[in-house]
């Protein structure tokens, strides 16, 4: 079964003063979506990425450039990645269409090339 990596980025739209109930509502939406993926018979695993800035390395032209990124300013509260096993891009896109993360940012889907 092909594997797909979903890279979740957020645009820093989270309110830092969210209430406990509002935070729970957000968690609830994600876990409901995970459960739906599983109910479709698809395995899903995930990792949260640290919300401190990452580094982007660029070696083009011989001189290494290191920048903070990919976003220089916004704190990526919900940045992370999922791995989903599915039959095709079409299926993953269909499964991801109602992912709650799309209210907060973008999702990049890449198929893992089998060895």
């Amino acid at each position: 079964m092909p594997k797909f990596v979903l890279l979740l980025r957020d645009a820093g739209r989270f309110d830092p003063n969210m209430s406990p109930a509002e935070m729970q509502a957000i968690v609830q939406r994600y876990i409901a979506w995970r459960a739906k993926v599983q109910q479709n018979g698809r395995a899903i695993t995930g990792h949260k990425l640290h919300d401190k800035q990452g580094r982007v390395l660029n070696g083009a032209g011989g001189a290494m450039k290191i920048t903070d990124g990919p976003y220089a300013e916004a704190r990526e509260v919900m940045g992370g990645l999922f791995v989903i096993e599915a039959s095709s891009y079409d299926e993953v896109v269909e499964l991801t269409r109602d992912c709650p993360h799309l209210d907060f940012g973008s999702i990049e889907i890449r198929e893992v090339q089998p060895t």
């Binding site: 935070m23 968690v27 994600y30 876990i31 995930g46 990792h47 949260k48 509260v77 919900m78 992370g80």
Partner: peptide
């Protein structure tokens, strides 16, 4: 929890 539970369960 809000950050980790969506990814780890």
């Amino acid at each position: 929890a809000m950050q980790q539970w969506p990814f780890r369960g």
